[in-house]
Design a protein around this nucleic acid. Sequence first.
DNA 1: TTGAAATTGAAATTCATTTTCAATTCGATG
DNA 2: CATCGAATTGAAAATGAATTTCAATTTCAA
Lengths: 148, 148
Amino acid sequence: MPLPQTEAPGYLTSQLAARGVRLTRQRRTILAVIETAKRHLDASQILRKARAVHADVDRVTVYRTLALLKRHGLIDELDLMHMEGEKHFYERRTQREHIHMTCIGCGQVIEFESRLFDKLKKQIATECQFHIKVARMELGGYCAKCRA
Amino acid sequence: MPLPQTEAPGYLTSQLAARGVRLTRQRRTILAVIETAKRHLDASQILRKARAVHADVDRVTVYRTLALLKRHGLIDELDLMHMEGEKHFYERRTQREHIHMTCIGCGQVIEFESRLFDKLKKQIATECQFHIKVARMELGGYCAKCRA
DNA sequence: TTGAAATTGAAATTCATTTTCAATTCGATG
DNA sequence: CATCGAATTGAAAATGAATTTCAATTTCAA
């Protein structure tokens, strides 16, 4: 009879391990939540989902783990045009940065990748001599379904 | 002997007047501060500057006036990558949207206009059928002086 | 002039996030 | 295996920005 298994390490977990970061049970739980999220989650949603797995995860630990991941460049923090309060949303950092569109009508978030976006960042880097660490492009407006 | 003059109405003031918005002394004061700002100001900076003119302007009125201007699309709200807390910064909405770069080293904010940026927004509007109301592109990184 | 609607300020409240600090856990070393 | 110091944790308190509440005041149109 197999013992309850620790979650198989995903990308975030192995990245942190590789950097010599201590992997506590709480951190593993939070990382798993972020790994498997299908939408952009805010801190309290991450807390709720983490607690469903291990009830003893604290809100502070969620915030601290998010800060850790940000520091290591493994997640991106989004504002999504502050559609509902000032909270932040999080997503795994992907190979290619993308644009987030939030619909004022239905609240859905659409993601979009564009060569033009990459090109624009290159232009800025060159023309402004600016060494980009994070690029965030967020739009507010109406999606196809909600437009008047 | 001329009476102390009410500030000459600027763009924001006349825009609001044209829309039938009541122009109180407090609002005029706050608008004048935003009109004449040389940098991006946050709410408490706007309050401080407004109070230097009329001591009886309240913090709440600043927030309410900012919300009013946002609602009328006359100002833009910026996060500037949350370099110092979660406060927002404000600027008059200009004819042409531009990009904001915040230097992680010295904190300076650089503005940049780009045809590529305009083109990218058009691409999004067309390809995603998304009717853009606000576009915000903010970058964090190192300016020419601060880069390693 | 009058009365309804808009605006205001002051205090209290909300909400997300951060700090503090004592207790616990981890993991390298003896 | 024991131990010691550093890292991590949780619970409570604190912070900081922004918002709500509500009574008093101002404004404007009739």
